[in-house]
Write a protein that binds this DNA or RNA. Sequence first.
DNA 1: GTCTATATGCGGATAGAC
DNA 2: GTCTATCCGCATATAGAC
Lengths: 208, 208
Amino acid sequence: MLTMAYPKHLSSADILKTAVNMVEYGGTDGLSLRAVASALGVKAPSLYRYFPHKEVLEAAVAEEIFNLMLGEFRAASESADPETRLRRLADTYLRFARDRFPLYSFAVQSRLPEKYSSKAGKAVWNLLLEAASGVSGQPDDTAAAVAIWSFLHGYATLEHFGVFGASGPKGGLERGVEAFMSNFRSSAEPVRKEHRPRATDIRRQKLP
Amino acid sequence: MLTMAYPKHLSSADILKTAVNMVEYGGTDGLSLRAVASALGVKAPSLYRYFPHKEVLEAAVAEEIFNLMLGEFRAASESADPETRLRRLADTYLRFARDRFPLYSFAVQSRLPEKYSSKAGKAVWNLLLEAASGVSGQPDDTAAAVAIWSFLHGYATLEHFGVFGASGPKGGLERGVEAFMSNFRSSAEPVRKEHRPRATDIRRQKLP
DNA sequence: GTCTATATGCGGATAGAC
DNA sequence: GTCTATCCGCATATAGAC
């Protein structure tokens, strides 16, 4: 088949998948077109048939990562009890950020132009917003969601960079979660059922 | 003076100072030996007379940044009232992180080998630890310090990367600070003077 | 003490052959 | 559709001249 000396065997989906892998195992700034191409057994210029330039690929990678997060977060958000839902979501969020930090970091800190704004990223935010609002009893409690989100992001990041040192965080995670749960609860109607599970489900765990 | 055709006009201090400037205005990964040398009117190889390789310069830069932070934080830590002290420290921390994000980010996320471990960085941590412990009434309350530190770092970072979107954080900062203050207070003796200033002093401000 | 010249390595992107 | 070849830029670091 001489006419197929260069048969098509690339696709946008394959490139995207490989690129996500490069970020996960090559570090947040480990995404290079040469490396992606090499992993696919082709040369870098070939990728330009599918992505006009790197930025477009980066936006697609970020979106894909947010979709990965979304899949796990949705499962965690299924609990009926508001407080359990928020605790499980926080647990899952932290687990993703810890175990797949390069992916997490790439998505959250991707400062891409507005035109690449992420649908999945917004969906993740909405899950957090609803979960926090569910505990506080205030609809669209942005302040509550921003507060606990900041805490989770900061904890995961400082932990990743080894800032807590040899002594470790020493219960700082549980302390923070309890502080927010208590604060959110106090925004809700003062009389509630005594359903207040401990924070013991939030521990360092590995993804399966 | 033919024997001084290449007179000395570099010093470790000058190089360090310039390097810190490059990070502040050139971005977290904007530290290149070429750029530093160019700003000093020399060529890159000249720097090797003062720093054996880049990593040593990076460690010096991180230490210098922590010292800058330390200077501001010490001033904020002078209040006699524990709660005011923690609020002012949090305010100052956030202001530094916001207004000089590249510097802040470089120092906090510098993952340098253990042998470069920062004295000033530890001093910053100790200020936070003492301030948080002062409010909670528990000596060396690591959990409390870790919790509020995570929150401040996360908030500053998410804000910097524009993650809160057009709607903005909508009081998420004040909400978080209050949640922690309340939590810390409850660890202390239950009866306290009614000295509970509002969180209104924590606002976006520019450094002078 | 600083220089030029150079080695080696990375990266994105394009033109034009096959 | 993929290739080779190339241009451009960036970087750290070293050898040896002045």
